[in-house]
Design a protein around this nucleic acid. Structure first.
Lengths: 274, 274
DNA sequence: GGAACGCTGTATCTTATGTTACGTATTTTG
DNA sequence: CAAAATACGTAACATAAGATACAGCGTTCC
């Protein structure tokens, strides 16, 4: 069975004319990058003419060059999204548990790889500056994450509200929301219409939205000031929210640190209470 | 110093108009693949128009779109050649994020290292066999985990209840609990007296208790049939529940798989509903 | 509340990319 | 060795890509 284009090439490279073989070797040499460039660049790199490149991809079974490039991109996408955790502790390997854990660890690394310090610091700063109120809400499976975050934030600062219950209930809370306020939304596939509607209305009221979503981006991203895209794919019937959970915890920690650094009175009061 | 385009983006994303910010977020969400596609595809993915994409890359300092793509390809080439550097975003290394993430990943590895497949399989089996009811409850910060687990389990099987609200409310639910029932409790430091009391009473009624706790073990461990001890230490003012969260997700997956394997009618009915 | 500014999308244009046709060179085969 | 078949490159073509001009709209700031 042939799964990757690289395999396909090495499978057929023997039956290729000289020019096309040069093309193949050039592509393999730094796979798959050469294939993502233009035909002209590819041909120049291989030292052959453009038509030879086209005949080469045709021989591989592709209808045209763009189709070939799409295939390469898909392959690359799959590769980038699951870096195939080689760095895993071998002690836990072997069982049925391991694939799940491995995927989760990969998801977290990937999620944070796309997340810079600055982004997180910006979001944390926005959450820490007490200009207005903070609202949190989530979807069917992610609402617990909103609760978790709210439970922590509500301790270190005032005016933190988790929006619970039925749609009509939190829709009425829109009245309280304005430009100075922040709305944290958790929404992963399958995206909930009620949340999108709510986000849109909040956005029109000038509320700044911080969105936790998956890599396919909830439609709410359209209205969001900040978007955190977490990886959710695991070998399970369900998607995993673990990466988003860790981002949430990281943010909670960052906000706490910022408030401490700012010498917030509330924090000192809290410590004296313990 | 800015070395990667991803960094460049997150550096300037704050100063971007809404449309371009959307483009930026879409690109970051699955970086760098979207940037390698055509302007039309990029714009479609981001839900904005082509000119917005072009203005976006112009703002990043590129003369034209091909130049932008070349830069992405160069970056990708460097990454593909040294996979080690790919593990973490160099931008976030050394920052405040990395220690938190590292600690969390370590916690998970450690947690699962002390957790055998058999333990998890036993617990999953206990949750999957539908002899009685399943109750879930958590403490101040861990109750969201109970909710999260309940939200999933309640779908694949009947008689799953999350115990919410005030102590008096769930204390009264004890009446419904018996030998055939399971109680899942989340309790980490500082352990809540109310939960301990509740666990003790449930235990005396013959309820089987599955406890999620930290490595120092909640006093409830005394009454529990199964104990899952997760690592919680992170460089933050708060403890991390992330490891427990992942165990919960793993269990949810395992229970689902067992029910599927058993050919549970409910699972088939569910699938026909979708 | 009005005016200026800036952002965004539609439509048009231009560029350059992929594609194809054809003639020459090279190899293969009888 | 000759003839056929195949491979390859040059050059012209059509298409689709990126770029630009402009008008409408929302936002902000007097």
């Amino acid at each position: 069975m042939i799964s990757s284009i690289a395999e396909l090439i090495s499978d057929r490279i023997g039956a290729m004319p000289a020019g096309e073989r040069r093309a193949a070797q050039t592509l393999i040499a730094n796979y798959p990058l050469t294939g993502l460039k233009t035909v002209a660049e590819f041909s120049a790199a291989a030292g052959v003419s453009s038509p030879t490149i086209l005949r080469f991809v045709a021989r591989l079974g592709f209808q045209n060059y763009p189709e070939f490039q799409s295939a390469l991109q898909d392959e690359l996408a799959a590769q980038l999204q699951s870096p195939a955790s080689r760095t895993l502790n071998p002690g836990s390997a072997g069982g049925a548990v391991s694939p799940m854990l491995e995927a989760t660890l990969d998801n977290m690394r990937e999620t944070f790889r796309h997340l810079t310090d600055k982004q997180l610091a910006d979001i944390a700063a926005r959450l820490a500056e007490r200009r207005g109120k903070t609202f949190l809400i989530g979807g069917r499976f992610t609402d617990p994450l909103a609760r978790y975050m709210a439970a922590h934030l509500a301790i270190i600062q005032p005016d933190v509200y988790h929006l619970a219950g039925q749609e009509s209930i939190w829709r009425d809370r829109l009245i309280d929301m304005g430009k100075r306020d922040v709305l944290v939304i958790f929404d992963i596939r399958r995206y909930q219409e009620s949340l999108v509607r709510f986000a849109e209305k909040a956005h029109h009221r000038g509320v700044q939205i911080i969105l936790f979503t998956d890599q396919w981006l909830s439609p709410i991203a359209r209205f969001a000031r900040h978007v955190i895209a977490g990886r959710t794919a695991v070998p399970s019937a369900w998607d995993s929210s673990a990466a988003l959970f860790v981002v949430a915890e990281t943010l909670i920690g960052a906000v706490t640190r910022q408030l401490e650094a700012a010498g917030a009175k509330r924090i000192r009061d809290l410590e004296s209470l313990r």
